[in-house]
């Protein structure tokens, strides 16, 4: 089945492919960081007692979750330069798109994590004389973090896979770089199988690690 394929082409284009991998990693790292920060802000707003704030965030989250990520990428790719009035590199437009998109998912995970802590825990903490802030810090958040960390990590692995969608705006991540080589030298099989294999190994190992973490720290 694999006769006639030349896997040496991978070695020949290694530097080019490596740059693609770097871009994928960069984009993922920045998007995860930005998404988490924004996600925390959104979750806090969603849990606050200020109703309009909570509704606004709920609307934002539901809205972003109704749309395909590709469409969101197109939106920000065309919008960001228009809004800032200057030409913005594709990388930054796409990064903003990813941050805004992932923050919606992260905020839901964070909100669920905090809500999953039993109500009685807050009562018990406050009955001892702890202030709201102390109760949050020593009783609620430690438990919430244990619950939500595996889910947040899993979502980040999903994010790593989602970055491949930058293909639609031509950003040279791992997949797009491989695609460029594949089209140029007419060797799709070797390139795409390589990309698939790398993702498979990385994501599978990462998921296994997350599972082990979950088992160790489950409450």
């Amino acid at each position: 089945m694999f006769a006639g394929f030349d896997f040496g082409i991978l070695w020949a284009n290694a530097p080019f492919l490596w740059n693609g991998i770097l871009l994928t990693l960069q984009l993922t790292a920045l998007a995860v960081t930005g998404g988490l920060l924004l996600g925390v802000v959104l979750a806090v707003m969603r849990l606050s007692s200020v109703k309009p704030l909570a509704w606004a965030v709920e609307g934002y989250v539901n809205f972003l979750r109704s749309m395909p990520l590709i469409l969101v990428i197109f939106w920000f790719y065309t919008l960001v330069p228009k809004l800032t009035g200057r030409p913005v590199s594709g990388f930054y437009s796409v990064l903003i798109a990813f941050i805004m998109f992932e923050a919606a998912y992260y905020s839901e995970i964070i909100r669920a994590g905090i809500s999953s802590v039993r109500r009685g825990q807050i009562s018990a903490a406050m009955a001892l004389g702890l202030t709201r802030l102390q109760a949050m810090r020593y009783v609620i958040l430690p438990q919430a973090l244990r619950n939500m960390t595996p889910v947040l990590l899993t979502q980040s692995i999903v994010m790593l896979q989602d970055t491949s969608l930058v293909y639609v705006v031509g950003l040279r991540d791992f997949l797009t770089s491989a695609d460029i080589v594949a089209s140029r030298d007419n060797r799709p099989t070797e390139l795409y199988m390589f990309v698939a294999l790398v993702f498979l190994v990385v994501c599978f190992s990462a998921s296994r690690l997350v599972n082990r973490l979950r088992r160790r720290y489950a409450l």
Partner: peptide, 15 residues
Amino acid sequence: RNIPLLVQMFLWYFV
């Protein structure tokens, strides 16, 4: 689950 959907699409179509 561990291969991006877009990569799967290319595999099906080209490979």
